[in-house]
Every structure is written in structure tokens, then in C-alpha cells.
């Protein structure tokens, strides 16, 4: 009798475990498809272009099971899978876990408290326990494991899978794409006053300095100014690294000269050369014509 009650509970327990596995797979697939469809719709493949680590692989094709799949697609599949795995794991970790006995007692009130008591006392042999186990075995006969299957939950997942698969097929077939992409999201994030942590009007200063030809920040340097002095064009382009201080490309040569203390001079103010009346040759005309041009504008 003890073996019989154990077999009943174990049979339903294994059926329950199978159904749980089915729910997890269905949930995982549905979540994965939702994520993947969203990634495709919102051009998330451009995300890989924003990371220098992935840049060399963008556009590369990989042969998997005879299919040539580009790196971005693989990346999106992997990302969607990982996210859906995490989300599914969290949901199932937090979900209430009932054992087979609780399930049976809930679904079949005639077994309420009796099944658990019979199962816990299955190794005890006395007249009352035998009577209890006998009664429970008889009342458990009509119980079908298939009654544990939550058809509604599965149908919901199936609907989501079919819907997202259809959307994906449509997007892939028609090549439909939204105009929203990760770069747009980046712009949105940066416009949030505190989230970006900096003034949106300021541009980041690049390590190696910028030139007037820096197209990524067209507003900073403006158009290169050209001045014609006496028929000759004077190049006013800022050399690279100017204004940025010393960079690795502009290290001065090290000298081992010992420090020579300068003579003590009279510490009176020395005016800037800009105000010298006697400017070096050619500078006076350049400066003068520059200000004349500005005045004309």
C-alpha cells in the first residue's frame, strides 16, 4: 500500500515536471521572439557599429548549418536569447512552486488533507492508516495527469509565438524597418538633463584634438578661413593638437641640460608682443587685413 501511494504521487509529480518544462520552453520561445522582433524593428543591428570591439566583424558572414548569416543577425539572436533566458529564469524563480500533492488536493477537494496525510504516513502500518491509504487510492483512480496541464497558459504563449513569428516573417519578407535606431535612443538619452551628466550643448573634446576638417563636429571649427594678402593666400588652419596642450604626438625632445638659473631681472610687467609697435615682418599686414575683412562682414 505504501508503494502504491508513492507510485501515484510520483507519477503525477513527473507529469507536473514535464508540464513545467513545457511552460518554460514556451515562455522562453515567446520572450525570445518578442525581443528579436523588437530588435529587428528598431534597427538594433546598428548597435554593433557603436562598439569598437564589434566593428571589425560587422557585415561579416558566418556559415552556420549551410546558411550564411551575418554577424549582426547572430549578435541580435544571441542578445535576444540571453535576455529572454534571464527574464524567464527570474519569472520562474519568483513563481510559486506547488508540489504534486498540493496540485492534486486543489484540483480534487475529496483528496484535500487526506492525500498528504496518507503520503506522509505511508511507512506506518496500523488499522487507521491502512483505512486512510485505501480510501485515498480509490479516490485517486479517476485523477488524470493531463488535468494538470494549464491549457490557457500554453494557448497564450502559442498565440504570442505565432503573432511574433508572423510579424518577423512580414518584416523580413518586405524589408520593413522603422526609422528609430540605437543612435536615436542615444540622442534621447543624452537630452535627459541629469541622465547624460553633461551640458547637451557641449561636445566632447577628443584626445588627439580636433581640426577644422573634423566632420563629426561640424559646428565647432567652422569653415576654414582664407585670407589673401598681396595676392597670396595665407593658410589660417589650426595645426592638429593646437589648444589641447601636449599630446603623445607632440612630445618634446628630452634634454639633459642641467637647470641654469636665470639672472634676476627687474620684475616689472612685460607687455605682450601683440601690442608691440614693431611687429615682425608681414604680421602687421595680416592682422590688419583680417580685421578689415571682419569689419566688412
Amino acid at each position: 500500500m505504501a508503494l502504491e501511494i508513492e507510485n501515484i504521487v510520483n507519477k503525477h509529480e513527473s507529469a507536473l515536471k514535464k508540464y513545467r518544462g513545457l511552460y518554460i520552453c514556451a515562455d522562453l520561445l515567446a520572450t525570445f521572439l518578442i525581443f528579436y522582433v523588437l530588435f529587428v524593428l528598431f534597427n538594433m543591428r546598428d548597435l554593433f557599429l557603436m562598439f569598437s570591439t564589434f566593428e571589425p566583424y560587422t557585415g561579416a558572414k558566418f556559415n552556420i548549418l549551410g546558411f550564411g548569416i551575418i554577424f549582426e543577425t547572430l549578435g541580435l539572436i544571441f542578445l535576444a536569447f540571453v535576455l529572454s533566458l534571464i527574464l524567464t529564469a527570474i519569472r520562474y524563480y519568483r513563481a510559486e512552486k506547488k508540489d504534486a500533492i498540493s496540485f492534486l488536493e486543489e484540483k480534487y477537494p475529496v483528496l484535500k488533507e487526506r492525500l498528504r496525510t496518507a503520503y506522509d504516513n505511508r511507512n506506518t502500518d496500523n488499522i487507521i492508516v491502512r483505512d486512510l491509504i485505501g480510501g485515498v487510492i480509490i479516490d485517486s483512480k479517476p485523477v488524470q495527469s493531463s488535468s494538470f496541464l494549464d491549457r490557457r497558459k500554453l494557448a497564450k504563449n502559442l498565440f504570442v509565438i505565432v503573432f511574433t513569428a508572423s510579424v518577423l516573417a512580414y518584416v523580413v519578407g518586405t524589408g520593413y524597418q522603422t526609422t528609430v535606431g540605437p543612435t536615436d535612443l542615444k540622442g534621447v538619452i543624452e537630452k535627459i538633463p541629469l541622465a547624460s551628466g553633461s551640458d547637451a550643448n557641449l561636445y566632447p573634446v577628443k584626445e588627439n584634438g580636433g581640426t577644422s576638417n573634423n566632420e563629426s563636429n561640424p559646428g565647432i571649427f567652422g569653415k576654414p578661413e582664407v585670407i589673401v594678402v598681396e595676392g597670396k593666400e595665407v593658410d589660417l588652419k589650426m595645426p592638429p593638437g593646437s589648444g589641447q596642450g601636449f599630446t603623445s604626438q607632440q612630445e618634446g625632445n628630452q634634454t639633459n641640460e642641467s637647470f641654469i638659473q636665470s639672472d634676476l631681472e627687474n620684475p616689472e610687467a612685460v607687455s605682450s608682443q601683440a601690442y608691440y609697435e614693431n611687429l615682425p615682418e608681414g604680421y602687421r599686414k595680416v592682422i590688419q587685413s583680417y580685421f578689415e575683412e571682419i569689419a566688412k562682414e
Binding site: 506522509d120 506506518t124 492508516v129 486512510l132
Partner: peptide, 12 residues
């Protein structure tokens, strides 16, 4: 004697 034989579940 029968009183002591009445089974009770671990949960209770």
C-alpha cells in the same frame, strides 16, 4: 489506543 494511531501530516 486508537486515538494515538490517527495519522497526522508533517505539515500539520
Amino acid at each position: 489506543k486508537l486515538t494515538r494511531l490517527v495519522p497526522i501530516s508533517e505539515e500539520l
